[in-house]
Amino acid sequence: MSHESFKAAFSNAINHVASNISLYVINLDKDLTSNRKIGAGNLISFMVSCVYSSTKLELLDVFGLVPNAPFASAFNQQRAKLKSDALEAVFHQFNSLVLSMEETASLPFPCC
């Protein structure tokens, strides 16, 4: 299985959770529903991809030095709105996608 397949599965898992974000926020009607600099998909992706640097440096790695890049405080405010169940759901979705891809790849090819 290629790294593109894993990347696509991860992206699909994040999109699946982000499209159902009302299940994973504190306030159902208003949290992470509007289009902000750090939307639900970007927030989850950012949280998973952080390595070991400070939030400020990680944000610089992702957004660069663009004038409208979000501050660390904006990230912290958005993160506070998200339940930990969201990350768990991403990993469950990702695992099920990868397992189904492995099962499909292990099927024998039909003979001509």
Rank of each mutant, 00 (worst) to 15 (best):
F75R: 03
T55Q: 01
E103Q: 12
R79D: 04
N12F: 06
N15H: 13
L97D: 14
S19Q: 02
S96E: 13
T104W: 13
S53P: 05
Y24F: 15
V48I: 15
L65H: 12
V51K: 10
M47E: 06
S22K: 15
L28M: 12
D61E: 05
N42R: 14
Y24I: 02
A80F: 06
V66I: 15
E58T: 07
E88Q: 14
V90S: 04
I44M: 07
L99C: 09
A8K: 08
M47G: 00
Q77R: 09
R79T: 01
L87Y: 01
Y24E: 01
H3Q: 07
S106T: 03
A74F: 10
K7Q: 13
V25L: 08
S96D: 13
V62D: 03
V66A: 13
F94R: 06
F63I: 03
L28W: 11
P67T: 05
N15G: 11
A69R: 14
A72P: 11
L32G: 04
H16W: 14
V48K: 00
A9I: 00
E88T: 14
F6H: 12
A13N: 07
G41N: 07
S5K: 14
A69C: 04
L107T: 03
I44H: 02
N15W: 08
S5R: 12
E4I: 05
G39P: 04
N35R: 15
S106F: 03
S11W: 01
T33L: 15
S5Y: 08
L107K: 12
F109M: 08
R79S: 02
V90N: 01
L57H: 08
F75H: 00
S19T: 01
L97E: 13
M101W: 02
H92I: 10
H3C: 05
A8M: 04
